[in-house]
Write a protein that binds this DNA or RNA. Sequence first.
RNA 1: GUCCCCAUCGUCUAACGGCUAGGACGGAAGAUUCUCAUUCUUCAAAUCUGGGUUCGAUUCCCAGUGGGGGCGCCA
Length: 404
Amino acid sequence: PEALQVIFDGLRWLGMNWDEGPEADDKYGPYFQSLRGNIYKEYLQKLRDTGRAYEKDGAIYFKLLGERYQAWDDHKQKHVEKVRCAPAVINDAVHGRVEREVDEDFIIVRANGDPVFHFVNVVDDLTMHITHVIRGEDHLSNTPKHVVLFEAFGAPVPHYAHIPLILKTKGAGKMSKRDQGALIEEYQRRHFLPEAVRNYLCLLGWSPKDDREILPIEEVIRLFDLPGIVLHNARFDEKKMAFLNTHYVRTLAPGNLAWIGRPILAEAGLVTDATPEDYVQAVLLLCQEKIRALDELPHFCSYFFKDDYAIEPGAFEKLSKNGDPLARLRELRAALAPQEDFSEAALEQVVQGLAAQHSVKTADYIHAARLALSGMSVGPSFYGMLRVLGKTRVLARLDKFLKA
RNA sequence: GUCCCCAUCGUCUAACGGCUAGGACGGAAGAUUCUCAUUCUUCAAAUCUGGGUUCGAUUCCCAGUGGGGGCGCCA
């Protein structure tokens, strides 16, 4: 129930909506296996009526047609009854024609009465009028079972497309829920942009064939086709997804940035409903070109929203080795006090004037002031930072730092 | 074990049977500068192996090897 909601949320977050199914048009519902018992019973009866189902050891088996013989099964380590019959044929939209024989009767209803996946899968596809089955390649080897079931029901077999799997970043095997980065929820929680995750996923096993990699979803939809899917599995690479995420963060429109960024800052306890929107937007816009991901945002800009920021250990000592940061701060403070125009261009002139006057580099003012005003040695564009903080905060913070 | 699927830089991928095997991420070096991040330039990096078909094979065929998956009274 809760787990189900997480899946729905994840799909919607990626922008993958459905027009038929749970929480949508329930044309062929119910959509939960637990509610479809009567349907499965009805279809089981059809198989019994045509002699294609029988009971053994309390379970119900699907009966294959053909000559029967005993054989040793090395995998199960026992003798089994095999059936000689023609291989089932799958016309796969990705792999082409695939043949594989089903040569053993298989269970469709367990002794406890629960129907088995292969059986409900086919009944559901049938009753829900599924025309195309697009699923992971791990199902390819089981598809012959589904084909013989469709045939036993006298129903047309749907079109199949078995797409490559995503393999673990390192180590053997396919990616599973337990693997790092496998869950959509994780990217939601880390404030990845859904369009970035989606873009990356689209590139796993498919490409537009023209060297483009950053593609809006509309373009993917326009160009996508089943035969264009590659035949081999792909290894998951979070570095490349992070790259795409950074790209999408950098190109986020200002309005969207504010819409997405403010809740992240609120969640981190940095802004409240009372924090002016203009100020939040100015901070976000300033930091946008520097951050690599939105979850860096709180740490990167926290000092814009609180005055009790800590000073990065060792940073002041490092500055002192190559100059006199306190002297620079006093000079800057004096120059800014009468300064009315806090535009970036005007501020830059002020600092350049100071540097010329005292024969030091502008960087000496910038590095010292950045540390005093933010507590950090890295941050956004310096003049932009002064502009956004505003004269009052800047002077107060310089005074506080010089007193300490 | 057996059956099915697959094989191009470390990774994701391009290349009617025909130019020097292209792009991207990551890596390395450099340029740019207020830090960081960008941006720009450059470099290293691949057709699994062996046979065949062909004037010519990354491409087609076969075998081997390697990887993935199935063979559940799991889904």
